[in-house]
Nucleic acid binder design. Structure first.
Length: 227
DNA sequence: AGGTGATCATCC
DNA sequence: GGATGATCACCT
């Protein structure tokens, strides 16, 4: 693999570099980086995201910091169809399942992760070979006041249920814009959580995800405002 | 085991 | 067809 020495020093520099590859295919970017393209993503689910991280100079690795640490910006690739509608929900962060007493929205991982996100749409449905999927125009997004309100409301409702020992009764249908779903290697992975009556139970780790209509709307709003 | 990057595949 | 619940790879 070719290592790209680029590290963005400003928001505008990051955006310029992301805009410059809009219209490229993933295959073209992989070639430029000397990376092999998988035939499909079954065994390479994070491949696209990591490819863009490398090219754009994300430096946080798996540290608990934004991908672009000095810019405080997260990078998310998001698969979209030809109409620009997201094909998948977007993982945000794992959900704490214990020690929830006193945890406030403003201290939550979700709140911190969503401060600033650079969305890179990847155009291409599942049937399209990975190499042929196209990189779209980037969107630098910070939640609006109304978006923050929706997010906070969902988060508080979900966390309250978790704190009450009801995590196992929460489904992905809860929440208007945020949902709670499994986030694990497989269904045998267990972690501790609060159970009924304040007992301790073992349950599947959960993560917060943004629902498709929410990410669809924020992308649409950006592109329509931009003209 | 728990975090990062996500998409798969079954069920409705 | 689309969303929910399950899963895949790699890192620490």
């Amino acid at each position: 693999m070719i290592t790209v020495p680029f590290i963005p020093e400003s928001e505008s520099q990051l955006l310029e570099r992301a805009e410059a590859i809009a219209g490229w295919s993933l295959g073209e970017l992989a070639d430029a980086l000397g990376v092999a393209v998988p035939a499909n993503l079954l065994h390479h689910k994070g491949w696209g995201g990591q490819l863009l991280e490398r090219y754009l100079g994300a430096d946080a690795g798996s540290k608990p910091e934004p991908d672009f640490s000095r810019l405080a910006i997260e990078l998310k690739t998001i698969p979209v169809n030809s109409s620009g509608k997201p094909l998948e929900t977007t993982f945000i962060s794992v959900c704490p399942l214990t020690r929830l007493r006193g945890l406030r929205w403003q201290e939550s991982p979700v709140f911190h992760k969503l401060q600033a996100i650079l969305w890179i749409p990847i155009l291409g449905e599942r049937q399209i070979p990975v190499a042929n999927r196209l990189i779209g125009m980037p969107v630098l997004w910070r939640p609006s006041p109304s978006e923050w309100q929706l997010l906070q409301q969902d988060w508080e409702e979900i966390i309250e249920r978790v704190a009450l020992g009801e995590v196992e009764s929460i489904t992905a249908r809860h929440g208007e814009v945020l949902q709670l779903r499994p986030k694990a290697a497989n269904s045998k992975v267990l972690t501790q959580a609060i159970g009924p009556g304040g007992t301790t139970i073992e349950t599947l780790p959960r993560g917060f995800y943004l629902k498709i209509p929410f990410t669809h709307a924020l992308l649409q709003r950006h592109f329509s405002a931009q003209g």
